[in-house]
């Protein structure tokens, strides 16, 4: 369980996260949405421990973030950020192995290597293991980074939860891999990982999220189960765009369509 109470962050002299209070429970996929500059990434960095907290408190399994040892935290909490930039040639398997760094002190054990192989298999990137990371496509890089995060929290700690935070994890992926990655996310949620993801695509959030958070100008505007929270009025309030919800004839969750009805005249006019 991740508990956040009255969290406030400053960037460039301005408050970018304003007094957010929320609990993230395991077993559910929490998706954060909001327009550009609404403070999503800063919020995620702050409760991950990589952005200074101006006020408020973050607790992992009841223990304050400020009193947690960084390495101990890294053994149970992995973060996948927007694509990091590399300046050196590195093999894919070496990058995935970095996920095991918090777990060994000098040399990786056989178990660490096995975990990395399993993580790569789960993301179907075993074939990339020996490739130079810099030669990969954006989508391949994203899957490698996800495998690294997965390897980091592969085994469950003896007490407390595992945490996985994803900042726009599917931004470079084509539709097939978007869904493949989010399926893995869904499995992890079933394994009781505390899972929080920032997503840009509201329809993906509709389809995969259990609960959704709407952020605007650093404020938590709405939070709750997807079917109850995602409504045209809220989308217009937060994103400044008209939207309609079309029911899916197969009986799954509705699909969001943007724009006013009269913007796209029917027929050939």
């Amino acid at each position: 369980m991740l508990s956040i109470h009255g969290l406030r962050c400053i960037a460039g002299g301005q408050p970018v996260v304003r007094d957010i209070t929320i609990d993230f429970a395991p077993g559910q996929l929490h998706v954060i949405v909001g327009p550009n500059g609404s403070g999503k990434s800063t919020f995620l960095k702050a409760f991950s421990g990589e952005w200074p907290i101006a006020a408020g408190e973050v607790r992992y399994d009841g223990v304050a973030l400020s009193s947690l040892d960084k390495t101990a935290l890294a053994r149970r909490r992995a973060v996948m950020s927007q694509l990091p930039e590399l300046h050196f040639p590195l093999r894919v398997e070496d990058i995935v192995l970095m996920g095991r760094y918090p777990h060994f002190s000098f040399g990786a054990t056989r178990a660490d290597h096995q975990i990395c192989r399993a993580a790569m298999e789960r993301l179907s990137i075993t074939g990339l293991a020996g490739r130079d990371y810099l030669t990969l496509s954006g989508g391949e890089k994203q899957r490698v980074q996800f495998a690294r995060a997965l390897a980091q929290i592969w085994d469950a700690p003896s007490d407390g939860c595992r945490y996985l935070f994803l900042d726009e994890p599917v931004s470079s992926l084509d539709i097939y891999y978007q869904h493949e990655l989010l399926e893995v996310v869904r499995e992890l949620v079933r394994e009781q990982v505390v899972l929080i993801a920032v997503l840009h695509d509201l329809n993906l959030a509709m389809q995969y999220a259990h609960r959704v958070l709407f952020l605007r100008q650093g404020l938590l505007v709405a939070e709750g189960p997807v079917p109850e929270v995602v409504k045209p009025d809220l989308i217009r309030e937060v994103f400044q765009i008209d939207a309609r919800l079309l029911p899916d004839p197969e009986g799954r969750r509705p699909v969001i369509v943007y724009g006013q009805t009269d913007q796209f005249p029917a027929g050939r006019g």
Binding site: E50, T71, V79, S81, P84, L86, H87, Y101
Partner: peptide, 20 residues
Amino acid sequence: TKALNALMLGETEAGYLGVR
């Protein structure tokens, strides 16, 4: 060397891997 390897990913990423 391990921490420096992690630093190749950037300071924030290294931090997430437990590097001070």
